[in-house]
Design a protein around this nucleic acid. Structure first.
Lengths: 199, 199
DNA sequence: CCTACCGATCGGTAGG
DNA sequence: CCTACCGATCGGTAGG
């Protein structure tokens, strides 16, 4: 079922990690204190350390688990060897699905990774570069084959990625997940403007 | 020249504010200490307080100055009473221009406002709601008149805004400001996909 | 603008 | 899992 089952999933530990992720999303990693976390799971501060090694261990865990989700996703998409447009649509679906499944981690992944300390920060940035390189390759291929607009690839990639990065913030969602994915595909692939107004 | 000239612009104070904005962008507001800031401007910590009232005063100043730039911009656009598509293109240019002119403030504006404390946080959120209401109105008008795709307006608005929010991050820009604005307009209005591949 | 210093809070540990 | 506690660092002040 789970592809990388950790041996140390005690329910208590799980609860602490989830609470921490929520806290990090709301206040940011640095502004979240172990006191905040402890009171959120009804423990004393010192008791947390029976379950976790340090505050940073939580951040590391969240960041790399999330990175792995993205990496696994994009690798699967690349292996399918589809048209660029199909691949990009699956990338959109991937990001929406991750954002919906785990709303907290995406924030952490986007905003809080910079608080990782050094061997971890380097490893994380390497993963991120790897992901972006793969995505940019898809885009470049699409430009060469005339499927994608001939604009600066880095601009396309960053616009694509960041247009997906608000989803975890949308609390009161008014559309279903399926409809959300469809609408995001439409708006990103075809733009805001109706085609008759194409200029 | 400057539309809201502050009486208390000493060059020293300006220097401190700029250094703080950079620091907040790199490390985040909470992780930036007054010690960091002091050493960045070659002062002792206590000397900072001859120029500023508190750490939060800097954040407040940055957030509201930036908010004012956006508000002034969108109000000017609305007053012109153009077509929706023209208005949205000007919104895109507005965001790109603010991001290029003041790279630090945008990050702070996007990510660090949540660390404002209470009377300020409320005021800030009110401004933000006002801005988003105005932008959403433009979009709704565009949908009604058939210029904009008939998708959930909040989804369009958030996708639009967040697709513009990575710009301050792009250090090694490879395109000129003018080209950047043109490419952002094209990608946001017309989408990634070339029209012959329209599906 | 500095020296000297403060109370509060931080992440984390000892020991049970 | 708790009580008790630690050294480090925080934002900020007194006084000159």
């Amino acid at each position: 079922m789970t592809n990388k089952t950790k041996l140390r999933i005690s329910p208590r530990k799980e609860k602490i990690f989830r609470a921490a992720a929520e806290l990090f999303r709301e206040k940011g990693y640095t502004a979240s204190s172990m006191r905040d976390l402890a009171s959120k799971v009804n423990l004393e501060v010192s008791s947390l350390y029976s379950h976790i090694r340090s505050k940073e261990e939580i951040l590391i865990d969240i960041c790399f688990q999330c990175a792995e989700n993205y990496m696994t996703g994009i690798n699967a998409i690349i292996e399918k060897n589809q048209t660029t447009v199909e691949s990009l649509k699956e990338v959109i679906a991937l990001h929406v699905n991750i954002a919906l499944k785990d709303e907290t981690s995406v924030t952490v992944f986007n905003d809080e990774w910079k608080h990782l300390s050094e061997p971890h920060l380097g490893r994380f940035l390497a993963l991120r570069n790897d992901y972006e390189f793969k995505l940019e390759s898809i885009i470049r291929q699409g430009i060469q084959s005339g499927q994608i607009r001939d604009l600066e690839p880095k601009l396309i990639m960053n616009t694509l990625l960041s247009s997906l990065h608000w989803l975890h913030y949308w609390k009161k969602r008014t559309v279903s997940p399926k409809k959300l994915i469809d609408q995001m595909k439409e708006i990103i692939c075809n733009g805001l403007v109706m085609n008759e107004n194409f200029e």
